[in-house]
């Protein structure tokens, strides 16, 4: 089946690069918070792909790439943030706004789903982006993040709910969600 592997490897990578560089950089950016670092991370990720025995990744390429990308991005973040060694275990840089979703004043200011997304814990944002931006399945997200599939499902469920409630609470004219379902 894959006898042409060696020959096609170059093109394979090119196609993958074309298709996935954008989503991968975006993903790494979410972790590193810096576009240039994110680019470096993705370059490293693809370089590692080139030196990997590809047959063993057959069918898992995408989760594999996301996992490598995630690890590298986390490494970068760890190295860059001596100031706050807890950044990873905390995983909740935004917990300062737990009331953001319920305060009436703030409701008005949420125009987009993305803004609501931003108020969620970092981990939840990550999972939601992997699902809706990078279009990975629950199972693949589980492989990449190490969360259980159940947990992934729960995070997505709760996140969508927060976004939904927020958008439904907006005045009709502004609510994209309402417009879609009414």
């Amino acid at each position: 089946m894959r006898s042409s592997e060696g020959q096609n490897q170059g093109t394979d990578v090119k196609a993958l690069l074309h298709r996935l560089q954008g989503p991968l950089i975006r993903y790494a950016f979410q972790i590193t918070g810096d576009v240039e670092r994110a680019r470096d991370v993705v370059q490293d990720t693809f370089l590692q792909l080139c030196s990997e025995h590809r047959a063993s990744l057959n069918g898992h390429l995408e989760p594999w790439l996301y996992t490598v990308c995630r690890n590298r991005a986390l490494d970068v973040r760890r190295k860059e943030s001596h100031m706050n060694p807890l950044v990873e275990t905390t995983a909740e840089p935004r917990s300062d706004s737990p009331d953001a979703l319920i305060s009436m004043e703030q409701r008005e200011t949420f125009q987009s789903a993305l803004k609501v997304l931003e108020t969620l814990p970092a981990r939840q944002q990550e999972v939601i982006r992997l699902k809706f931006q990078n279009e990975l399945s629950y199972k693949e997200i589980s492989l990449v993040t190490g969360l259980s599939v159940t947990n992934v499902g729960f995070l997505i469920h709760a996140g969508l709910k927060a976004i939904r409630q927020n958008m439904l609470a907006q005045p009709h004219a502004n609510s994209k969600v309402l417009r879609r379902i009414k």
Partner: peptide, 21 residues
């Protein structure tokens, strides 16, 4: 509602600028 929300979200995520190496 979940589907509609998911679509809105996808749409907005798609509108983020594309990044390249």
């Amino acid at each position: 509602e979940i589907r509609a929300t998911a679509e809105v979200l996808k749409e907005e995520l798609r509108s983020e600028p594309r990044l390249q190496l």
